[in-house]
């Protein structure tokens, strides 16, 4: 079960992995996510599926090694198995014809946006994509998204590649100079917040794909709750995509940091064990 059939490193801490999970490969739609457990004593963490191959029963995930769980996942090799893979969870992205669409992606959001980008392209939308990274070495999938998009912008904070600055720089220019019908932002919460704050002034419909802490992923625990338009919603069953203009990002960022001390400890113990 859940055998790893392919693995490659996209940057020094971003890994792409293909896993055998026929039922999920068959069922998953763009925008939905899975939950994995690396081993029996591990955490359950949500991850997004980049591509799926129904015929061969394979799904491909991309993740960044940031904490203990993703580091343990990164150590898994081809031929090994994961303890649990469950999904698809959440709702599919509302794919339809919007017109001029801008996709803004950062971090592993660059991978997460791929299936939605493909589907939106197939639905006839004109796709402009903005990828942001801190520096050139952290960039990946510029080719993948470049081939799906009608226009691609890349920004780096330090100017080592593409435009120097944040993703909001080319986004603002696009908003000022052209008609944009929909924006989708996928990536770090702070980036999705900045994008939503910017587009609000232009009254452009903006979707964001939220990534809170989760356990079960079926609406059972409520750990992933988030305030949207003043109401509590569960990201796992009501999302993961929401209207960015209505999301309480500050609360979300706060909740994402609930276990920061424990996460640091777990990582430190893992690094000590490895050393």
């Amino acid at each position: 079960m859940y055998k790893i059939v392919d693995k490659k490193r996209l940057s020094n801490n971003v890994v792409q992995m293909t896993i055998e999970v026929p039922l999920i490969a068959k069922a998953i739609k763009p925008g939905q996510f899975i939950i994995i457990m690396v081993y029996e004593k591990g955490e359950r963490i949500p991850l997004t599926v980049v591509t799926s191959d129904k015929e061969r029963g394979l799904i491909t995930i991309v993740f960044q090694e940031v904490g203990k769980t993703t580091k343990l996942l990164g150590k898994k090799e081809i031929g090994e198995e994961l303890f649990a893979v469950m999904g698809p969870n959440g709702n599919p992205f509302p794919v339809r014809y919007y017109g001029n669409v801008v996709l803004v992606a950062g971090g592993v959001g660059v991978a997460e946006v791929v299936p939605i980008a493909k589907a939106l392209k197939e639905a006839g939308n004109h796709i402009t994509t903005i990828i942001g990274a801190r520096t050139k070495e952290l960039l990946f999938f510029t080719d993948v998204l470049g081939s799906i998009s009608d226009k691609l912008y890349v920004t780096t904070d330090d100017g080592s590649y593409g435009i120097k600055g944040l993703v909001t720089l080319p986004l603002k220019e696009l908003l000022d100079t052209s008609r944009i019908d929909m924006v989708l932002a996928v990536g770090p919460t702070i980036m999705m917040k900045a994008v939503s704050d910017l587009t609000r002034g232009y009254k452009v419909k903006t979707y964001v794909s939220l990534n809170p802490i989760m356990i079960d992923g079926t609406g059972m625990c409520g750990g992933c709750r988030v305030t949207v338009d003043g109401k509590t919603r569960f990201v796992c069953v009501d999302g993961p995509e929401f209207d960015g203009h209505l999301v309480d990002f500050d609360e979300l960022m706060m909740r994402q940091r609930t276990y920061i001390e424990q996460e640091r400890l777990a990582l430190k113990l893992l690094e000590e064990k490895d050393a």
């Binding site: 004593k41 356990i215 276990y259 424990q262 996460e263």
Partner: peptide
């Protein structure tokens, strides 16, 4: 998830 056994178990 056995969080009372953290850090032997990973869930905090």
């Amino acid at each position: 998830m056995r969080a009372h056994l953290f850090p032997e178990y990973d869930t905090p």
